[in-house]
Design a binder for these strands. Sequence first.
DNA 1: ATACCTCTGTAACCAATGTTACTGCGCAGG
DNA 2: CCTGCGCAGTAACATTGGTTACAGAGGTAT
Lengths: 210, 210
Amino acid sequence: MIQDLKEEYGDIFEEELINEIVQVGTFKEVPEGYKFMEIGDYIRGMPLLISGVIKILREDEDGDELLLYYLEKGDTCSMTMACCMGDKKSEIRAIAETDAKLIMVPIQKMEEWTAKYKSWRNFVFNSYHVRLNELLSTLDNIAFQKMDERLIGYLKEKSRVTRDNIIHSTHQDIAYDLHSSRVVISRLLKKLEEMGKIKLHRNYLEILDL
Amino acid sequence: MIQDLKEEYGDIFEEELINEIVQVGTFKEVPEGYKFMEIGDYIRGMPLLISGVIKILREDEDGDELLLYYLEKGDTCSMTMACCMGDKKSEIRAIAETDAKLIMVPIQKMEEWTAKYKSWRNFVFNSYHVRLNELLSTLDNIAFQKMDERLIGYLKEKSRVTRDNIIHSTHQDIAYDLHSSRVVISRLLKKLEEMGKIKLHRNYLEILDL
DNA sequence: ATACCTCTGTAACCAATGTTACTGCGCAGG
DNA sequence: CCTGCGCAGTAACATTGGTTACAGAGGTAT
């Protein structure tokens, strides 16, 4: 755990803070598909991602989903901070997109470290505005792009975070993430295949040239 | 200026910080329609809103607009912080929705005060997560609601921030904010009028019962 | 009053997306 | 090997929202 932590966060946190994190944090190793957090859950801790990818989803009352963004190593979830500081329930769902390692830090430490460590303060501010910009760009996609462009963006982004030009998803999976329907996605994927940009298979697809 | 500042921020900032703000801040009084910031502008300062309402808009490459949210008294613009910490250009446009008073604080002070004053730190964190939640709810509206619901939400929100159940906008104005077209908005407004929820006039409309 | 300009109402039409329904394929388990 | 189930392909159709076009209403400047 300590090595992992140092490797990923050693450059940005001072020695003393790293030690504190090791003291109070809980190391977790979770498999793909693990659900960290459900909408309405109370937040117990704040995650520091060491490896893997976590996807953050929004859901409305009717159960319609929408992918907000991915967390990658070195990231934390600002939503978590935003929520716990207002001691509210989670507004989002978090699911491991790949196997992942992370450290959970009790939220009480947040405040304390914010006052004590400049590096922690910077880290938290940085997370906030990375997330703000991420949300903004998600909003752009939804507001200004058509489904075909969003789909291409989705495939690119997913391929980027998983470092794999094979997308291991069914059409239905993709439809959920983009808040669309299976038929629509199948239709558009077929077009992309006809254009030679991807190759379709059962349960997965290959990205050729997006 | 000092009275205004104390009245609005006296409860949350300590005396010493208030004094510093007065020292380095510039008081500004601007009329409705004043454009504080354009997309691509470099950010010179951070606004502390004392009275009035500012609307924050997003725009894509083609010039299509979208209302993100309103800033009200006591608010500041987290986008500004997010941008200036990465010494980047503004991602948004800010326009006075009503006459407004505010204080501009040079961005260099941000960092300094964040280390020095707990109240400032809390204020900044708080702004960040209020904005995150605001953006999230904007996203919800766009992703999960149809135009008619979005329109109703827009009218309610606009009426709330301006404390006026008369909306002084043309159909075209509304269409811009919602990133739709004039004809569509006229169509939907007519339906709302038929349902007895609003009353239409030239250049404005009354909210009866939304 | 006249001319002009902006705003609103409305119809006809189009494109994108979502929905329903049915087909067949491939794979896993008995 | 057969069965059943989940996944993908496809067609027909509905709905929403956007576009174009035009007419009339209200207000303003000359």
